[in-house]
Design a protein around this nucleic acid. Structure first.
Lengths: 210, 210
DNA sequence: GTTGTTTTTTACCATTTGGTAAAGGCACGA
DNA sequence: TCGTGCCTTTACCAAATGGTAAAAAACAAC
């Protein structure tokens, strides 16, 4: 059984685990956890249902595995926010990176959103240990920048939530946006511009008050 | 059969239909469409499963009924945006109303989000006929205000999307926010302040450029 | 009260679904 | 060529789930 993970996994194990997780990402993100079936995942992965169970302990184990891998990529842009950089640039770059993730990895965003919507039943620990410390660290950093007068006065925690809200909205509510703004290409362009201008205006230190 | 809706429904029909829809809102918003079961809804409504089917054509009919009633309340604040009011006030009031809805009706928000996340399979027509015309009307109105120099230059469509994104985020990602900002009371207060200041700053016409 | 209609319950059913058992297949070293 | 251990498939199963049939109960009109 490859479940142990104590020994090094063979090439075929790595390949099939990856195939399963890719298939699971597609199916889970489209139908949600309970809406997805093992048969769907098996078909998408090009293998039989019992074969999934051979590589993972069950449906929930697959879901958790996909979510955990997801979170790493998901937090990377926030990690990259550099205390030694220019505050405004750092935050705008972060927002831009999150927008890029929404455009390039909408399935990942929707899978995550789905899990949170349902109360994060399978991810609460990961939020506590992975997300929360990083969130607090970066909120403190932004707070320091504000204290130094290098950013406008904003609640740092609320600022981060705003960036998440807006950037993820473009992926998560894609179905709605496509109805309202049918032209996909210009929609994304305008979204990038809007988000950048919005946070630039919010964070720029007013020149008048010197 | 009360399904006809041609004749006037009896008092008992109205009462039970409402009980079912309330129960369904709770269950659907927590588990999603496929995650919810008729048995759960029946228990929450205090009646038997076949009794649900007596009042509604089936699971999907219940879901559609709940979503449709939802959309009316959901669009009301946007309807109230007054062409004759003060532009900044109108938009900030709208944003505040949406925040209030997120705080008071998070289940409604999550049910809606869940449906959109999954591609709006049961609501695409309602989006086209109900939401889209209103969206375009109000975007045009904001565009006129900007043309008159009464608001800062912003893409009106992107502005509306931003308001939706941020306000709904507080309801939809509640599980995440409660991990990051445990104190619920002050969290909401700060959220209200942040959202108001954010859009005020974005939309205020700069005094310097006169 | 009797009768006809609306509402509710009891007992089912067919399908779907997550999961298992156990028998093959297959690669690869001896 | 023959094991030996990893991988895959076939054939199932028990529980859950959306839905139905039909009888019983409640109710309303007379």
């Amino acid at each position: 059984m490859p479940e142990d993970a104590a020994k090094k996994p063979s090439r075929i194990q790595l390949r099939n685990r990856k195939k399963i997780m890719e298939a699971a990402l597609n199916v889970f993100s489209q139908h949600g956890y309970r809406g997805a079936t093992l048969d769907q995942i098996a078909e998408a992965a090009g293998m039989s249902k019992p074969n999934l169970i051979y590589y993972f302990d069950g449906k929930e184990a697959i879901h958790v595995a996909v979510l955990n891998r997801l979170m790493e990529d998901w937090l990377a842009p926030l990690h990259e926010m550099d205390p030694n950089g220019n505050p405004l640039d750092e935050i705008l770059t972060y927002a831009r990176r999150k927008m890029e993730m929404s455009r390039k990895f909408p399935k990942e965003s929707r899978l995550f959103a789905n899990e949170i919507l349902q109360g994060a039943p399978r991810m609460a620990p990961h939020l506590e240990t992975g997300l929360k410390p990083l969130f607090e660290e970066k909120a403190a950093l932004i707070g320091r920048w504000i204290g130094q007068g290098r950013l406008a006065m904003v609640n740092p925690e609320q600022l981060i939530l705003s960036i998440w809200a807006i950037t993820q909205h473009y992926a998560d509510f894609d179905a709605q946006i496509r109805v309202l703004i049918p032209d996909e290409a210009t929609g994304w362009d305008e979204a990038f511009i809007h988000v950048e201008e919005m946070f630039r205006k919010l964070l720029s230190v007013s020149e008048r008050s010197d």
